[in-house]
Design a protein around this nucleic acid. Structure first.
Lengths: 337, 337
DNA sequence: GCGTACAACTTATGCGCAAAAGTAACCGCC
DNA sequence: GGCGGTTACTTTTGCGCATAAGTTGTACGC
């Protein structure tokens, strides 16, 4: 790798002059030398040593994307197309802005923090952090942080959140189910916090507005860990007669559930209606095609990255960005009387 | 961020002493000072500045994972669960070895090369490169390179390839189809090079061994670009009566095709048998569940990363690693007479 | 014809770290 | 008692870059 010093030596000039040309500092250098240097740079295919540059500038041009997986969801997380689309959106945006992306997947917040400080990343995008983790990280590192899908009022004082109007999206879907004659609607999720809680609230609100009483027994818990999922699916299938429709917090769960039901001879949507949330390829390719709440995951990644880049450029950004959702009516809901 | 210099000042000793403790150079430093320094390091939560360290050491502790997307497959690539599982496998392995992963997605080899040299990565994992690209990159940067799923005899002189026995896997599947009475078997792919070509060879070989003549018209070309895919699917569906079974080079294509067929009232496996390759969640969750060739994508990522780490440690590795495949018989193949 | 302003450079410094080279004290040994 | 060897340090250097500070040379105004 050729260095500025060597280039300067060969061109018989100072390193500062070369450096000035590299940084396009016109006015500091004559057109003549500028051309000469530029030609030479191209010839030797000069690439700056990023470590030296970063050391001198005290920046890194790296944006960290930390995916925190709950230990019990690890496999699931990385399998989910949601994640790769998100990564794709972030990477593309960051790269176009001249930044680099360092990906970090862990279930340990401390490990993530160590990683962040080691690399002195310029900014951080966090996904899947527990609410308090985001705060912990942001308090320790005074770098801009953008969280994705984090629900925490306290957190919003410390970082920007990019999310959805989860409550509204769910509300719309439940309202749609009710309009199709459904009253016994279950809510399937793996936890009752953050995003899932917001969706649960939308569910409750829609029921309430329709005069249907919320029953806690209609909250169906799925255990995503690979050695438990079959059991929890079996339980849910066994109880399927209690409901006419099940709202699942993700397409993944919806499709998984439909498979389990189908295997037991319970047909969707004839015997029971199933809806999801996300609108990813899983539901799109499924037959019957999944009725679901659409969210634009790539846009989420892009928005998160854009917001972070703005903050790095010193611009103000709202501390809460909610992307819209819309219903995608396909074939897994039956109209009943 | 506290520096070694500052620590040395506060402890009233030289930076070298501190540095020696950090690097565990016993014998260079007394137990007393060692303990003192270690205590202090813990107290101030010292984290080395990686840029300075890398500059001084001329290494980076970064492994680059470059995903090259053919421009027309970009969306597709990042959507495919294949990619996220692969990323997950690589990231996990690299992280456990104390390395970091920089992810780079691009359709431009030159851009990837620039990225590589900018960051002075210690090693590179390439996926989706055209065969010659890998050689170009490896000739320019004398760093260890591991390619995934690259078919190039020439390339194997320059780098290690981690792949599958694609030919055998396909051979086994076609043989199975034939054992189920199928003779008119189509081969669906989007190109005829690399992995797909190896699978095509397996297909041809199995036909030949069964005394069935290969017809080039049985090669079905799918155009994955979003504005062309519907058209090519329609074409294929229109011709579906010509075959009793279609081998698809990926589960994604298989499931996509089944959806298209189903939408036209053509049932799988009653009217036509469809098989895939990969065995990912797409086919697992599909009903009827997809009969496919299993490959362990995570193992692929892990193996690639492991191999690279070995090379970085100066160990010899084979220049060609083929992971095994096996058939997964599920419900998309009908036995015919 | 002298001071000033400015263009076009060069020299020097430091970012934080690792490591080579240097130093000083001490111990044992013939 | 002088010398090699060892221990436990310190001083110095340099990685490649950016930049602050310094140095020319020259055109211009009065």
């Amino acid at each position: 790798m050729i260095t500025i010093k060597e280039i300067a030596r060969q061109l018989n000039m100072s390193t500062t002059t070369v450096s000035n040309v590299i940084h396009g500092k016109d006015g500091e250098v004559s057109d003549d030398t500028k051309k000469k240097v530029e030609k030479f740079l191209k010839k030797v295919d000069y690439v700056p040593n990023i470590n030296a540059r970063n050391l001198a500038q005290n920046e890194s041009k790296i944006i960290g994307l930390a995916l925190k997986a709950r230990a019990d969801k690890y496999e699931n997380l990385i399998m989910d197309p949601f994640v790769s689309v998100l990564i794709g959106g972030v990477e593309e945006t960051i790269r176009n802005a001249g930044y680099f992306m360092m990906l970090y997947i862990s279930s340990d917040t401390d490990e993530i923090m160590r990683h962040v400080s080691t690399w002195n990343v310029d900014g951080l995008i966090l996904f899947g952090m527990l609410n308090d983790d985001g705060i912990r990280v942001s308090e320790k590192y005074k770098k801009p942080i953008v969280c994705i899908d984090t629900y925490s009022l306290e957190g919003l004082k410390h970082f920007t959140n990019v999310g959805l109007d989860d409550e509204q999206g769910t509300y719309d879907m439940i309202k749609y189910l009710i309009s199709q004659g459904h009253k016994k609607i279950a809510f399937l999720s793996d936890n009752q916090s953050g995003v899932d809680l917001a969706r649960l609230n939308g569910y409750k609100k829609a029921l309430k507005d329709a005069g249907i009483k919320y029953k806690s027994s209609n909250f169906l818990q799925i255990h995503p860990k690979s050695d438990e999922i079959d059991e929890s699916l079996a339980e849910i299938c066994d109880r399927s007669k209690e409901f006419t429709a099940i709202f699942c917090v993700s397409d993944l769960y919806a499709v998984t559930l439909i498979s389990a039901l189908t295997d037991r001879g319970i047909n969707v949507p004839e015997d029971i209606s199933i809806v999801g949330f996300d609108d990813n390829m899983l539901g799109q390719l499924h037959r019957p095609a999944l009725t679901t709440v659409h969210q634009d995951v790539k846009a989420k990644g892009i928005t998160a990255a854009d917001t972070l880049l703005k903050q790095l450029a010193g611009q103000k950004t709202p501390n809460q960005i909610k992307l819209p959702t819309h219903l995608v009516i396909r074939d897994t809901v039956r109209k009943i009387n």
